[in-house]
Design a protein around this nucleic acid. Structure first.
Lengths: 250, 250
DNA sequence: GCCGAGAATGAATCCATCC
DNA sequence: AGGATGGATTCATTCTCGG
């Protein structure tokens, strides 16, 4: 390993770098759980009908990027980029390792394509139900996020069969350190797919929720983020020690 | 209209024919809500080409539910076929009409492609949460079905914004007349997208749940099914008159 | 009528075996 | 070799029936 960790303690390692630079150096990964940038926010729909572009601006997790509006090139580059990191992550993973990739509805078909093109066996779409609805102006309110999941070849033998739908309210207020942050309970739900002792990888760590959940479950973990501000936030969060009750908080 | 209705009463019409034969003759459709054959059911071709009862209810001892046809297409023909009927349905629809197409996780990306290629504006993925799931041995249990939805051009103005996730247990026992039957409450949920008085179309009627829900909501409806056994079941079900309580049973 | 034990069920999946 | 078939298996929930 030539890359230098930004943080390392208690089986948890953080790299402050581009995912594609670090992933080729990893091996022995037992589970990949991540929430990559969606590159969504309404920028990619070939949009014949949308009246007001402004309604997508800043309503999602990403700002609208006008230079990409209505251009399917980005849909394709999102596919290529997703395939690249997913393949690199799979190369470092053991046989049977599960992969979980968050996506919004817009990018879900591209994500399922990327997972398969990268060599993973796609096995399903799990749903994180946020328990509330946001009216989106044209019809149904979006109250769920999706997780495209699969395995590296045949699934490892497992004792736990988590449900394909998990209900949990989103993070709010001071606990929210990142615009796209997921609650730890959501990550613990997905980590039930990991076998005992599996090395957890999150190539787009953000504020470190996946790593925090892995730590609370007693699993070693590797996180990568290119933004040093988030590496710092995550490192602080992980340095706070394990939670009481053996990390089995509901 | 040259096709001869199999049943017609109280604003409800049933055609016993192939969807692609009848759809070109329809016009003025205000909402398309349907549950087409998924052509899904397993990673192995042998599993997919099995009869629907064998591949979907193999563990059960019940054999009284009729088989249904058109469930063994491969990926390419499923896409082409879906595009064809979706386009034909759109041609007969008024501007702003919503479309809702059920899918399982495996066919969801193909379904979103077909909806868009057929000229509909894709607007989201809604989730029917069944409340519990069937374990599949390799990881998460599948406890949801998905609804790809959109509109014919700009969405019609509406007052009702149904939630993007709806929880309701699946039909069981004698109320279940079709292997893939959806509860009426699920269909009423989707029909909230229809404007008042809209003509509802279900090209793959099955046992007629969509039509029954439309009838209870006071909406006119057209159903199509190629299997006369299901046309008979649906006609009987629709001839029973409106439910008490103004059709707002929970 | 209430409760609990045991059986049944589900738009599966995987593997062994037989043509 | 490759398609077709039979059957074991997984868990949450509901159903059935007896006490």
């Amino acid at each position: 390993m030539t890359a230098e960790p930004y943080y390392s303690a208690d089986g948890i390692t953080i790299y402050c770098a581009e995912a594609l630079d670090v992933l080729p150096e990893l091996s022995g990964v037992g589970a990949v759980v991540t929430d990559p940038p969606y590159s969504s926010g309404g920028a990619f729909r070939g949009d014949r009908t949308r009246g007001v572009v402004a309604k997508y601006v800043q309503t999602g997790t990403l700002a609208y990027r006008p230079e990409f509006a209505g251009d399917s090139r980005d849909q394709r580059s999102f596919l290529v980029w997703s395939t690249l990191w997913l393949n690199a992550a799979r190369q470092g993973s053991v046989s049977g390792a599960p992969v979980c990739v968050f996506s919004d509805w817009r990018q879900l078909p591209t994500t399922t394509d990327a997972v398969q093109v990268a060599g993973w066996t796609w096995r399903g779409i799990a749903v994180w139900a946020k328990g509330y609805g946001r009216v989106n102006g044209s019809g149904m309110s979006s109250s769920a996020e999706f997780v495209c999941w699969g395995t590296n070849g045949p699934a490892a033998e497992r004792e736990d069969y988590p449900p394909g739908l998990f209900t949990c309210p989103p993070e709010r207020g001071e606990d929210k350190r990142h615009v796209a942050q997921k609650p730890e309970a959501v990550m613990r739900w997905l980590l039930r797919l990991a076998t005992p002792g599996a090395l957890v990888l999150d190539p787009f760590m953000g504020s470190g929720t996946t790593l925090r959940a892995a730590m609370d479950l007693g699993l070693p973990a590797v996180g990568i983020d290119s933004d040093e501000r988030y590496c710092e936030i995550a490192a602080k969060r992980l340095a706070q020690g394990v939670l009481p009750f053996g990390g089995v908080l509901a």
